[in-house]
Structure formats: structure tokens, C-alpha cells
């Protein structure tokens, strides 16, 4: 029996390829803008999903601690070890704690935390929401008079936005411990001397910019994961794509944001 309906792409295929691609790009940009602006509208309006936010904060924060501890600790050791020869050439190994402090607080800790979270948390959110989308769980929430955007997206984005700065502070601490062990083993620097040099090298602007940057990274990771999952196409392939592109897109955006933050902080220092 012949199909009773018209094929959807008949008219679309008449358009040139470039035009169709441009249409898709602008449509995607519009969808992203609408998705992000909806967050700012929904986050202020009751009911507030306090329990779900705390649960997600636990999922994002507590469950990433193991991985963050390991990578932070290794980052501290490796960076210290790699920096030593350069400083040794000028007989300046005593500056190691200061150098490490600046590198870790200003760049390494926020970046390492955000990249680890992009891989672990971003893919989790993308896959979870993607799976909920294709199995109609999001629709089921909507028909049971629950706002799925507020319950699923707002809670996850808030959780990542606040968990990533917390994890960044933790990464700074763990990397500092790793660096101290290395410095202590090689230069026999005492803990009080190390701490004095470490904190003496950083300014309030360093810490402040690092925290603000981490909030932005957290928001980006949560928002990208939710957007990709929420808009995943039908089928298990769509879920895989959502998880994968959540990681790739959020990592890419984290680097772009790092670059922008660098310019802004440099401008602030010059003032």
C-alpha cells in the first residue's frame, strides 16, 4: 500500500546545500539561546527543587572526588618535577613553591577540574538525559504535571555550577600536597616554609578569578550536557552522540573561556 503522507525533505532538498547548512546553524543557535535563557527564567521561579539540587550536587561533587584527588595529586607532583630543571639552571629552586602556587591556582586547578568534570559529569548528564528523552521519560514527567526542565536541567546546571568551584578548591589543596611531597623529598623544604611561600605568591585576584572562572566552567559543563541530552535524537545512537558531543563541546568551550578569562584578568591586573 502506498504511503498516505508526504515526505518531509522534498521541499528542503530543493535548497542549496550551503543555505540548508546555514539554516541548521542559525536554528541551532536559536535553540541554544532559548535553552539558556529559559534557565535564567526558571531558576528564579518557584517551586524550587532543593532536594534534587542537593542530590545532583552529591552526584557531581562527591562522586568525582576520587578522580579529582588522583589527577590533582599527580598534577602537583608532575608540574613540580617538570619545573625544577628550568629553575635549577638559575639556581632558583627555592622559588618552586611560588611558581607552583601561581600555576596551580591561576590555571591548572580550574582547568584540570573542568576537563575532568567535562569527561565524567558532562558525559553522564548527556547520556542520562538523552536516554530519558528517547524512552519518553521526559514526556512522562511533563504529563504528570512536573516541569521537566526545572526538575532535570535547572537542578543539574545549579549542581555543576556550585560543585566545580568547590572541586577546584579541593584540587588546589590536593595538588599543593603533591607538590609539597615532591619539594620536601628533593629540596628538604619544611611544611611551614612551603606554605608561607605558596600563599605568599598568590593574590586575592588570583583566588577570586579562579573561583569565578570555575563557576563559569561549571555552568558551561552542566548546560552543554543538559542541552545535548535534552535535544538528543531518537534511538540509542542519539544517546551515544549526546554523551560524546557533551564532552567534546564542553571541553572546547572550557578552553575558549579560559582564554577569555586570561585576557580579562590580565586587563584587571594592569589597572
Amino acid at each position: 500500500m502506498e504511503s498516505t503522507t508526504t515526505k518531509p525533505d522534498e521541499a528542503a532538498t530543493e535548497k542549496p546545500v550551503v543555505t540548508r547548512r546555514l539554516d541548521r546553524v542559525f536554528l541551532e543557535l536559536y535553540n541554544v539561546a532559548a535553552f539558556v535563557s529559559r534557565f535564567f527564567k526558571e531558576v528564579l521561579m518557584p517551586p524550587y527543587e532543593g532536594k534534587e539540587i542537593i542530590r545532583q550536587f552529591f552526584e557531581v561533587g562527591y562522586k568525582s572526588l576520587g578522580l579529582i584527588s588522583l589527577t590533582g595529586f599527580i598534577t602537583g607532583i608532575v608540574f613540580t618535577n617538570q619545573s625544577r630543571p628550568s629553575l635549577a639552571e638559575f639556581g632558583a629552586t627555592s622559588w618552586l613553591p611560588s611558581l607552583i602556587a601561581i600555576a596551580i591556582v591561576r590555571a591548572l586547578a580550574p582547568l584540570v577540574t573542568a576537563l575532568i568534570a567535562s569527561g565524567k559529569v558532562g558525559s553522564n548528564i548527556g547520556a542520562e538525559l538523552g536516554s530519558m528523552k528517547v524512552t519518553e521519560q521526559i514526556d512522562a514527567m511533563e504529563v504528570s504535571a512536573t516541569n521537566p526542565y526545572k526538575f532535570l536541567v535547572v537542578s543539574r546546571v545549579l549542581a555543576t555550577t556550585f560543585a566545580i568551584p568547590t572541586l577546584t578548591m579541593y584540587t588546589i589543596f590536593v595538588a599543593m600536597v603533591g607538590a609539597f611531597i615532591n619539594v620536601n623529598a628533593n629540596e628538604a623544604t619544611s611544611f611551614p616554609a612551603f606554605i608561607e611561600q605558596f600563599f605568599g605568591a598568590i593574590t586575592y585576584l588570583d583566588v577570586f578569578s579562579s573561583v569565578i572562572k570555575s563557576f563559569v566552567f561549571g555552568f558551561t559543563i552542566g548546560m552543554v550536557g543538559c542541552y545535548k541530552g535534552y535535544h538528543s535524537s531518537k534511538g540509542t545512537e542519539g544517546v551515544g552522540k549526546a554523551a560524546n558531543s557533551s564532552v567534546v563541546t564542553s571541553m572546547f568551550l572550557v578552553f575558549i573561556e579560559e582564554l577569555l578569562a586570561l585576557q580579562i584578568v590580565a586587563a584587571l591586573r594592569a589597572v
Binding site: E128, M132, E136, D139, E142
Partner: peptide
């Protein structure tokens, strides 16, 4: 619409149970 939805039950083809 939410008030109306409370009076209308929807059973999905895929069951749509929350798997977590």
C-alpha cells in the same frame, strides 16, 4: 494545563518508567 494533566493519565508505549 498542569491542573488538567492531573485528570488525564497517559500510559506510554515504552512505559517510560524512571529508570533511576
Amino acid at each position: 494545563l498542569d491542573q488538567l494533566r492531573l485528570k488525564v493519565g497517559f500510559s506510554f508505549q515504552s512505559s517510560a518508567l524512571y529508570d533511576s
